[in-house]
C-alpha cells in the first residue's frame, strides 16, 4: 500500500475519531466529554474531505489559469464532500454550543461538572 496524501489524511481523521471516542467514554468532566465530541467531529470531517481527493488535481474553483470552465471535469477534485463538510461543521458548531449551554446550566444547579454527580438517569 503506497502512502499518498489522502491515505495520510484518512489515517489522521481515524486517529482523531478514536481519540474522541476514547475521551467520551473515559472522561468524567462534562467539558472534557464535550471536547471529545468536538475532536471526534473534526476527525470525521477530515475523513470525509479526504474521500474527495483525486491525485494530481486541485480545488474545484475556476481561477482562469490552472482550472478553467472547460477543464473543470478533469482538473478539479470532487466538490460534493467539501459541500457536505461545510454543512457538518456548522451543525457541529450548533450542537457543541447547545451542549456547552446545558453543561453551564447543570453547573449552576449542582455546582459540579462531574458526570458521576448526576445519577438521575442511572439505573
Amino acid at each position: 500500500m503506497t502512502l499518498t496524501i489522502d491515505k495520510v489524511a484518512l489515517v489522521l481523521g481515524m486517529i482523531l475519531m478514536l481519540i474522541g471516542l476514547w475521551g467520551g467514554f473515559t472522561r468524567t468532566n462534562l467539558l472534557k466529554i464535550i471536547l471529545s465530541f468536538s475532536i471526534f467531529d473534526t476527525g470525521l470531517n477530515i475523513l470525509i474531505v479526504a474521500l474527495g481527493y483525486l491525485p494530481g488535481r486541485t480545488a474545484p474553483i475556476i481561477d482562469g489559469n490552472v482550472v478553467t470552465a472547460e477543464n473543470l471535469a478533469v482538473k478539479a477534485i470532487d466538490p460534493v464532500p467539501q459541500a457536505l463538510v461545510l454543512t457538518a461543521i456548522v451543525i457541529g458548531f450548533g450542537v457543541t454550543a447547545l451542549m456547552l449551554a446545558y453543561a453551564l446550566k447543570m453547573n449552576q444547579h449542582r455546582k459540579s461538572l462531574d458526570i458521576n454527580h448526576y445519577t438521575d438517569l442511572k439505573w
Partner: peptide, 23 residues
C-alpha cells in the same frame, strides 16, 4: 454526481466556485 456538478456548473449556475454552487 461530481462529474455532473463539475461539467454543468459554469453554464447552469455561473459560479466560479463549484462548492458554493452546490451549497
Amino acid at each position: 454526481t461530481a462529474t455532473y456538478y463539475n461539467t454543468n456548473t459554469p453554464a447552469e449556475v455561473g459560479a466560479a466556485n463549484v462548492v458554493t454552487a452546490i451549497v
